[in-house]
């Protein structure tokens, strides 16, 4: 599995002149689970679009497994880095769920049993195993979003990048995405997700990268990212710590970014009091 690295990444949009990335250094080890958070326009999407070559750096470079991504086409990079877009309707075009999921692996040259197996695995992982023959446009918004996820999962890339995977998802859908992230990283593959859902971030990821105005301003574990000392940084990019983190701080329990962490800290305090 390859290591991803962005070094001194700068991106200036030619049309608007906006400097969306302003010297980003980021290294992601194989099998890592990384969430990128930050206000709209902080450069999150611009950053991940460099990982599969959809955008090319104005300055700096991106390497995948030590190889410079600038020498590879998007189609070549797509076999290593899968990117699930935020809006599923911007990619769905097939008349059946199975055909839609087959599109990516077919482009990578997979055929026959290998193709069928990848598609079946992806459909099961996304909870769409019974919808193979359905028309994608007959699915609800939440399931269309899972279909978009399945269509990239089927490509079985070493790196999976998710752009706002929980937006528009119901609780079951969020749980499904969380399971997919855990499954993929258990296989040693890397997951990077952009999200505004702080609870999902705290409960699913082991590393949180906070971006503001094209720069990384915080990089640490969820405990560090949602600890009281980081609240000012989060606030500067219009983010709030999770409710569990705020309750934990109010009760003097230390960092408790997740519900489970908060319950465990409360139980520990109860035991100490006894």
């Amino acid at each position: 599995m390859p290591e991803l690295e962005a070094r001194g990444l700068v991106h200036v949009y030619r049309d608007s002149g906006v400097r969306a990335l302003d010297g980003v250094d980021l290294r992601v080890a194989p099998g890592e689970r990384v969430a990128i958070i930050g206000q709209n326009g902080s450069g999150k999407t611009t950053l991940v679009r460099h990982l599969n070559g959809l955008l090319r750096p104005t300055e700096g470079r991106v390497t995948i497994g030590g190889e410079d991504a600038s020498g590879m086409t998007v189609a070549q990079l797509a076999s290593r880095v899968g990117l699930v877009f935020q809006d599923p309707d911007r990619q769905i075009f097939s008349s059946s769920v199975t055909a839609e999921v087959e599109f990516g692996p077919r482009n990578l040259g997979r055929r026959g049993e290998r193709l069928r197996a990848s598609v079946a695995r992806a459909l099961v992982a996304a909870g769409l195993a019974d919808d193979g023959e359905a028309n994608p446009y007959d699915l609800g918004g939440s399931r269309r979003k899972l279909l978009a996820l399945a269509s990239v999962l089927a490509m079985e890339t070493d790196v999976l990048v998710l752009d706002e995977p929980t937006t528009g998802q119901d609780a079951r859908g969020v749980e499904r995405v969380r399971e997919v992230v855990e499954e993929v990283t258990t296989e040693g593959r890397t997951v990077i997700a952009i999200s505004h859902d702080m609870r999902f971030v705290a409960e699913t990821f082991r590393r949180v990268v906070v971006m503001r105005e094209g720069r990384i301003v915080l990089d640490g574990t969820p405990d560090e990212a949602f600890a009281h000392e980081s609240w000012e940084t989060l606030s500067s990019t219009y983010l709030e710590p999770t409710l569990a983190a705020r309750i934990g701080h109010r009760l003097g329990l230390g960092p408790t970014p997740t519900d489970e962490g908060l319950i465990a800290a409360l139980a520990a305090r109860g035991r100490t009091a006894q």
Binding site: L54, T73, V74, A75, A78, S79, G82, L83, R90, Q91
Partner: peptide
């Protein structure tokens, strides 16, 4: 186009490959 390219659609290859890429873009 960006979403389909991210799924391996080759829009940088031969005219035939480019032509094959029209449907996944025009449909959505």
């Amino acid at each position: 186009t960006a979403a389909q390219r991210a799924r391996g659609l080759d829009t940088e290859g031969s005219p035939l490959r480019r032509a094959r890429g029209i449907l996944p873009i025009v449909g959505p």
